[in-house]
Design a protein around this nucleic acid. Structure first.
Lengths: 181, 181
DNA sequence: GTCTTAACGCAATCTGTTTGCGTTAAGTCG
DNA sequence: CGACTTAACGCAAACAGATTGCGTTAAGAC
């Protein structure tokens, strides 16, 4: 059991910030547990006992960074809301740092919980857009269709074919799913 | 430069088989470079110099295992060809071992070459199915649409939401892409 | 305030990684 | 075919990160 407050919470916070700081200072590939521990003011054994290994720690941090920090913008129509969201999503996720976070999140994730959390973030954002459109009286595809036809193709190409990805591709995907309603 | 034949080829082969054997004997997570080296009759430094680290080696082996060993079956119609291929693809890839291979292939892959190879395998299989259908006189979607609307959703769910995947899902995706032609 | 025990720090130990150097053999050219 | 160049490999030492037993601290419960 992980105690929620006090020293445990401080350790968790300082370790997470140590990872983020060091990642931007020395680079993602130069991170080691002893290095993170030293920066966080903690001993390596604490990190190993709590996270298991470096990959699980990086996975935790990655999920934290992949959480969207704003709600999707309201541009007046479902089409424009979904298009601009998809463009922004692709732009962030296809960047080198975005891809690194995705890989980290997938990597140190024995039970699939962290990857599922990433998917849930996207699903929430899409839900916001769709319910807003419904409230306007627009006909909308269901969230699963948007995930299958917009999110999944973008993620697939980011992971497996990272060439030739641009905003136009995101727009095509959105247009495709809206054509089906 | 990697010399194509002779000793280098023997080392490559024995290391790859050592990985496969040990993975099934002691489990994927218990693999270490020294362990693989001992089984392969090689010194660890040889593996480190050639592959860099364990993850890149596992990525190479994973890509090898993910290469399809048969051409897609001919069932007389595009719909049935594509459906049975997608069902089989999902079945293989969504299994625990399939997911492990996918993760390994994505993981130790600095330049994205191995992941691109996996995607190319699927694209080849789809091309076979589509050109066969064209020769029959059927109207077909283009390969990119099949990748976006069939392969990508399956892979996305395998990686990010590994629950509730079954053959019916594959059939729905195929039906969806065929509806668009 | 007292008790229980999860979480942590310390330090020794273990195991995997890295590297310099000598050797082997694949590929090349006369 | 024989000599030459150098990529690839083996060996072993040095290094660094991972692991673990044990004592200590402090969070949460009563």
């Amino acid at each position: 059991m992980v105690r929620p407050g006090g020293r445990s919470a401080r350790v968790q916070a300082s370790v997470h910030t140590a990872v983020r700081e060091l990642a931007s200072e020395v680079g993602r590939d130069a991170l080691t547990v002893p290095l993170v521990a030293q920066r966080a003011g903690v001993t390596p054994s604490t990190i190993y006992r709590r996270w298991g290994d470096l990959q699980e720690l990086l996975s935790d941090v990655a999920v934290e960074r992949l959480r969207p920090d704003t709600t999707p913008g309201d541009h007046g129509t479902l089409s424009s809301d979904l298009t601009s969201w998809a463009e922004q999503f692709l732009d962030e996720m296809a960047s080198p740092t975005g891809r690194a976070y995705i890989r980290d999140a997938l990597l140190g994730d024995p039970d699939g919980g962290n990857a599922g959390q990433c998917s849930a973030y996207a699903a929430e954002q899409i839900d916001v857009i769709l319910t807003r459109a419904t409230r306007r009286g627009e006909r909308t595809p269901d969230a699963e269709s948007v995930i299958d036809q917009v999110v999944a193709p973008m993620m697939y190409r980011i992971l497996f074919r990272p060439d030739g990805l641009d905003a136009a591709y995101a727009r095509r995907l959105v247009a495709g799913v809206l054509r089906g309603v």
